[in-house]
Each structure stands twice: as structure tokens, then as C-alpha cells.
Design a binder for these strands. Structure first.
Length: 307
DNA sequence: TCGCGTCATGAAGACTATCT
DNA sequence: AGATAGTCTTCATGACGCGA
């Protein structure tokens, strides 16, 4: 079973740093259940234990107290628009309620606050997180930084292709971690521990240094190319497929959708033999451009152009 | 050179996970 | 449950740079 979850960015950003590490992980696990089961569900202690990848043992009391911790941890929202109305101020916590039915000690009845999730969804974007990886973290610095890294991983930036970058002030990081460090060096010690752990667990190396002038920590990392074999700009693919279908001798195609999907896959994997011929044709006839202006002989790739 | 703010560092003690 | 190793927080201290 693969426990991939999409954790909302706001949930990643939420000031959950004040919660203990296991409670933070528990939120991730509960969010997975929420996606799977809806707002209310019953879950066994054993299943939660497995989701948290804890060793076998009795965790009933421990998990119960953490559920209470999350239940009591409220977050403030300002100016949110919910289905129930517009609020200038709104306070809620992730767990709406949880209970243990008499005679069913090993089951929790949990109700997640839909309004809370809805309030979070005011913001854009989701961060895909792998619960199995998240659960390997032993330090909250590692976990919080990893969540941040995954969130910002492919964000475009000015540093040129292949590099991801994000800067955070000491105040930002104190909020993320739930700490009150007064100096960069103090917080850097935690960052270093966290980044070291990320490298150990995922093999991904993230660089971090303190920029004295701007008074921010700058995190940077190498972005792997998403489609290393693709030779034309990604955003031109659909346009090119249409061009190809319109300028190719009539094909007998039973499902145009499936045909397009397969063609796209071939283009991305660079298995489409007529790519150069037809892409050059499109450049020439549709845009009056010569491929020599946009074709890099060394890499065999076409760079993008205006229009 | 004095005062000021900023900072790095060590140390102490609290906390946590894990093993037996 | 107790021991232990590692993590985390906080504080005191002194260094550093900068402008007056």
C-alpha cells in the first residue's frame, strides 16, 4: 500500500511547529484518512500505529493524548470565504471531535473539521507528500524542512534552469518550527540537523546559508529535469499534436483521445520518429521561423519562442 | 574608543525515542 | 520501568563591526 497524500500547502505552512513531532505526523496520517473516508470515520489504534510506522506496542494512550493535543490546537484565519459565509475572522482546529466508544477501546471515532479544511483551501496549490518518507523523520526540523522543500521544489525562479530556491527569514522559520530563536546561528543548528536528516533519508541535498545583507536563510537545490528526453518545449506538445494530425495523410483512428495520449507519450520519451520533420514544418509554415534559429545542434533540443 | 546592536558558541538541563 | 543516546531549548558570555 502506497500512502501518497496531497497535503494542502496551508497545512504544510500551518504553524504546527508547536506540536510535537509525532502529533505533526499524526496530522498527515489523519489527512490521508480524511481524503479516503471523509469527514467522519472510525479508525483502529493499530491502523493509526501502522500509518505512523511505529513499532508494535501499546500506543493507545499516547495516540489519544495526541489527538487531544491536535483537537485543542486551534488556528486563526483572517478573511476567509466558506460555504457557510464570509468571515473576517475564523478560528477552528483540524480535529472537530474524537471519542472512544464504551467497550471499543481500540477504536477512535474521529471527526475532521470540514470548515477547517475549507478555510485552508482558500490558498492555492497542493504539496504531494509521501507519508512513508515523512514517517522516517526523527526530528521536527527534518520533517518541516522536507515539507517546505517538496512544496517549493519546482517553483520557477530567476536563478536559471535546474535550480530551486527559497528564502525564509528567521521569523518565518521560527513560525514553521514553533521556536523563538533570537539569532541566525541558533536556528541554523536546527536547520543543519534537519538537512542532514533529509539527505540521510531521501538522498536529496539541500544547501542553506544565511544571507547577512538581506537577513534571510536561502535554501537551494538541484531540480531534476522532469522530462529529460523531451526535445521540444513542453507547452508546445498539444499544439504540435494538433498540427501533426491536421497535416498528416488521413489516419484510421478509432479513438482520437487515446491516439493523442500515446503520441504525447512518444514525444516525451523521444520515440516519435517524425518529430523533427513535422515540428520543423510547424515552425516554418505556422510561425515563419527557421529551425536553425531555435534548434540547438549540440543537445538536439528546440527552445521556445514567442507567440 | 565608547556604546550599541548583532552574532557564534558552549553548556546545562529538559525532552524524546529506543532498547532491554 | 529504567538506562542511554541523541535532540532541543535557552541562556550567558564575549567577539565583531559600525557609527558617533
Amino acid at each position: 500500500m502506497k500512502n501518497n497524500i496531497k497535503k494542502h500547502n496551508a497545512l504544510t505552512d500551518a504553524k504546527t511547529g508547536k506540536l510535537s513531532l509525532r502529533s505533526d505526523k499524526l496530522i498527515n496520517a489523519l489527512y490521508l484518512l480524511y481524503i479516503r473516508e471523509g469527514e467522519s470515520f472510525k479508525v483502529s489504534v493499530t491502523e493509526l500505529r501502522d500509518l505512523l510506522e511505529l513499532k508494535s506496542g501499546k500506543y493507545g494512550d499516547d495516540i489519544a493524548s495526541r489527538l487531544k493535543e491536535i483537537r485543542d490546537y486551534s488556528i486563526e484565519f483572517k478573511n476567509v470565504k466558506l460555504s457557510s459565509g464570509n468571515y473576517s475572522y475564523f478560528v477552528d482546529s483540524f480535529i472537530h471531535s474524537f471519542g472512544i466508544e464504551r467497550g471499543a477501546r481500540n477504536f477512535y471515532e474521529i471527526s475532521i473539521s470540514g470548515k477547517f479544511i475549507e478555510a485552508f483551501k482558500q490558498k492555492m496549490g497542493y504539496t504531494p507528500l509521501d507519508l512513508e518518507i515523512c514517517n522516517k523523520f526523527k526530528t521536527k526540523y527534518g520533517l518541516k524542512l522536507y515539507e517546505m522543500y517538496k512544496r517549493y521544489y519546482s517553483l520557477p525562479n530567476n536563478e536559471g534552469k535546474g535550480v530551486g530556491k527559497i528564502s525564509k527569514s528567521r521569523e518565518d522559520l521560527n513560525e514553521i518550527f514553533g521556536t523563538i530563536y533570537k539569532t541566525p546561528s541558533e536556528i541554523k543548528r536546527g536547520i543543519d540537523r534537519g538537512l542532514k536528516e533529509i539527505e540521510k533519508i531521501t538522498g536529496e541535498f539541500i544547501n542553506c546559508f544565511y544571507h547577512k545583507g538581506e537577513r534571510v536563510f536561502i535554501f537551494s537545490w538541484h531540480q531534476k529535469e522532469k522530462y529529460p528526453k523531451l526535445r521540444i518545449p513542453y507547452k508546445r506538445i498539444d499544439e504540435f499534436i494538433d498540427w501533426y494530425l491536421n497535416h498528416h495523410e488521413k489516419l484510421k483512428i478509432s479513438s482520437i483521445l487515446k491516439y493523442k495520449q500515446e503520441l504525447k507519450r512518444k514525444i516525451i520519451e523521444d520515440e516519435f520518429n517524425e518529430l523533427d520533420k513535422f515540428y520543423r514544418g510547424m515552425l516554418q509554415w505556422k510561425y515563419k521561423l527557421l529551425p536553425s534559429e531555435y534548434f540547438d545542434v549540440e543537445s538536439g533540443k528546440y527552445s521556445d519562442f514567442k507567440n
